[in-house]
Computed example of a mutant assay.
Amino acid sequence: MIVTVLPIFETDFKPDASLGKIMNERLRVAAADLQAIHLQSLEAIGQRNEDVVVYMSYNPKYKIRWRVVNDVSEDIENYVAKVCAELGYLRWSTAAINIFKGIE
């Protein structure tokens, strides 16, 4: 299975642009760590052509949130949810970013 974690960078940090750079770097590192370290065990599951794609961003209170954006089994999504919860990340609850899920 191919694991991809994509940071969705915030470009409208207020009031300080340098804060935006710091926060976006923090998100980039968190996404890289989630993919390379915390979800690495998923690479041994399933077929090579299967994948799981996770988006990460900030909520309005600058907490990291996550969302699986492709169709995966419930077991895989539950595993991602468990790992992210242990890391203190929040589930991204908006349906707008999840445009691929359920489309067949």
Results as ranks from 00 to 15, higher is better:
M1Y: 13
V3Q: 02
T4N: 08
T4E: 13
V5R: 10
L6H: 08
I8Y: 12
I8S: 10
F9N: 13
F9K: 14
F9C: 04
E10N: 14
E10F: 05
E10Q: 14
D12A: 13
D12N: 13
F13E: 05
F13T: 06
F13P: 02
F13S: 09
K14S: 08
K14M: 07
P15N: 09
P15V: 00
D16Q: 08
A17H: 07
L19T: 15
I22C: 12
I22P: 01
I22A: 15
I22G: 07
M23P: 05
N24S: 07
N24Q: 07
L27F: 05
L27M: 07
L27P: 05
R28K: 14
V29Y: 08
A30Q: 01
A30D: 00
A30M: 04
A31Q: 05
A32D: 12
A32W: 06
Q35Y: 09
Q35I: 09
I37M: 11
I37W: 02
H38N: 11
H38Y: 13
Q40G: 01
Q40R: 11
Q40A: 08
Q40W: 02
S41D: 15
L42R: 04
L42M: 04
E43G: 06
G46Y: 12
G46C: 10
G46M: 12
G46P: 09
G46V: 12
Q47D: 09
N49W: 15
E50T: 15
D51W: 06
V52D: 05
V52C: 13
V52R: 06
V53N: 15
V53Y: 14
V54Q: 03
Y55D: 14
M56D: 08
S57G: 13
S57A: 14
Y58Q: 11
N59T: 13
P60H: 14
P60N: 15
K61W: 09
Y62G: 01
Y62A: 07
Y62Q: 11
Y62E: 08
K63V: 07
K63C: 07
I64S: 08
W66K: 06
W66D: 01
R67W: 04
V68Q: 03
V68I: 08
N70G: 04
N70L: 03
N70I: 02
D71T: 00
D71F: 00
V72P: 02
S73Y: 04
S73W: 04
D75A: 15
D75M: 15
I76F: 08
N78V: 01
N78Q: 09
A81Y: 00
A81P: 01
A81F: 00
V83D: 00
C84N: 05
A85N: 14
A85D: 03
Y89M: 06
Y89D: 00
L90M: 13
L90D: 09
R91A: 10
W92T: 09
W92H: 12
S93W: 12
S93T: 14
S93P: 06
A95I: 13
A95K: 14
A96P: 00
I97T: 03
N98I: 04
N98W: 05
I99P: 01
K101L: 02
G102A: 12
I103C: 05
E104I: 02
E104C: 02
